[in-house]
């Protein structure tokens, strides 16, 4: 029924639950998993350093040395952030393959909602598994809701995994929960 399962992963503690549900779905139907992490500065992602957020684009300065140095730092931060995402993807991929599910992963830069939908379309996914953080009301309006975008624009079925927002999440505790 659901042979190709696209799993939208991000750097949040809920990703673990999302992945677990996707894995059980894949085991139930003997499906393939495709893990996707979307890199987007606009996201509410604790892994994004303040430096990256401040310089949404590269630094522009009159002094070329300062500019070069700043851009080097920017690239380093960006690279580190990318690596973090890939590490999570690797971790989950290994776990799924150990469970006997054929799995691939991919990391794309772009607007999360539209990127997920486009990717689902191009890889002919049967179902998208995505977490729902449970922001509601004003918070949802301002923060924007990736899952809401995906619900309205996805070309296929969607499994929304309920992942309540946990208060006061430090990067360490998130790491612990993801790699638990």
């Amino acid at each position: 029924m659901f042979n190709k399962i696209l799993v939208a992963i991000d750097y949040s503690p809920g990703s673990k639950q999302v992945f677990d549900q996707a894995l059980s779905l894949a085991k139930a139907d003997q499906g393939n998993l495709i893990l996707l992490h979307v890199l987007s500065i606009e996201e509410d992602d604790p892994a994004i350093t303040p430096y990256l957020r401040q310089r949404k684009d590269h630094c522009i300065h009159v002094d070329s040395r300062i500019m070069r140095r700043a851009n080097e730092v920017y690239d380093q931060e960006w690279f580190a952030w990318k690596q973090q995402g890939i590490r999570i993807l690797r971790h989950f991929t290994e776990q799924a393959i150990a469970g006997g599910i054929s799995t691939e992963f991919s990391q794309i830069t772009g607007h999360p909602g539209s990127t997920i939908c486009e990717f689902a379309h191009s890889c002919h996914a049967n179902v998208i598994v995505i977490g729902r953080s449970g922001h509601s009301g004003l918070k949802e309006m301002f923060l924007g809701s990736v899952s809401n975008y995906v619900i309205h624009y996805a070309p296929c079925s969607i499994l929304l995994v309920h992942t309540p927002v946990l208060k006061s999440t430090s990067p360490q505790s998130i790491e612990k929960q993801i790699y638990a």
């Binding site: 179902v127 509601s136 929304l160 309920h162």
Partner: peptide, 17 residues
């Protein structure tokens, strides 16, 4: 209906398209 359910459900939701 599906929109209401996705925003207010106490558990996971599978929307079958």
């Amino acid at each position: 209906v599906s929109n209401y359910v996705t925003h207010n459900a106490p558990c996971s939701v599978l929307i079958v398209r």
